[in-house]
Design a protein around this nucleic acid. Sequence first.
RNA 1: GGUGUCGUAGCUCAGUCGGUAGAGCAAUGGACUGAAAAUCCAUGUGUCACUGGUUCAAAUCCAGUCGACACCA
Length: 308
Amino acid sequence: MDAKPLLIVIAGPTAVGKTAAAIALARALGTVILSADSRQFYAELNIGTAKPDAAQLGEVLHYFVGQLSVHDYYSAARYEEDFLHLLPSLFEKHPAVVMVGGSGLYIDAVCRGIDDFPDPTPELRSYLKGIHTDEGIGKLQELLRQHDPVHAQAIDMANPKRLLRALEVCMTTGRPYSEQRMNQSKARDFRVVKIGLNLPRAELFARIGGRVDKMMAAGLLEEVKQFFPLRHLNALNTVGYKELFAYLDGEVSLERAVENIKTNTRRYAKRQLTWFTRDPEMKWFEPHQEAEILEHFAHCLNPPRSRL
RNA sequence: GGUGUCGUAGCUCAGUCGGUAGAGCAAUGGACUGAAAAUCCAUGUGUCACUGGUUCAAAUCCAGUCGACACCA
């Protein structure tokens, strides 16, 4: 029998019902939850990120919720490191733990690992951004062709963030990005079983609209006002916040801003689905299929005792 | 009731001199290794209100019907 501990991953688009499903599963298994949501990490952001509420946090112990400040730098690589550092102590007490969230890159960083690139330095990043604004994306493309012609063929050269990142790696290490990109999964001393939660598109979109209305009723605008002076921070470049900053700037009406939040949340959900559905390890359920989900994991966990 | 204007994509609208239609937004599909709720790429969506007429040919011209709006009674 495979004695390795189990990491249960629950993924899916925003507003599908991941939080409730994860809590139900964690309670059934008597275990803890580790969030994989790149915006719920921030202590200051609450309403707009649909963080689990106090009652939910009281039901099941959560990690990676509110452990950062919006002023902090964070990344998928740091998440991988923090997660893997925490995991052994949790596995001492629990044969399985639940990871839940919608940030695909962060989930993959933990499950497959990411390569050992240097962190970006603020100086180099702002220098390259300056080139982008002053001389245009063409200059960045030219630089990447010089530093790493192989990668220049492989990546989306229209995407400034990809270009900037590749150049950062080339310039800080003095070696081409493509040489350092291993493209293979790291070994892990735990098993991973992934489920994806999804709903018919119309139902998911209706849930998104309803949740945005609830967020507004719960005081999202007041929360966003507090962060107006900080709106340049990456953590605030977030659906639900950026649209209301546009309202506070006088660019759009409040009604328009709320509609924009709904639209951008739908698009976000679509991008999440694109990411998760290409993962062949993902087994799909609808969130209300609690019994089926439990049974799915019963096969992975203590097989002799799981049959009643 | 009368007169006028309008009715084209999910929405807002454009459509020249008759040659079966196109913008924006929405939507849909995709990419993704230290910013990822970020960033980027691609793609259409049609009973031109309906019925008939004129014409080789009608979103376009004519008549009627229905609907919306405005004004007049």
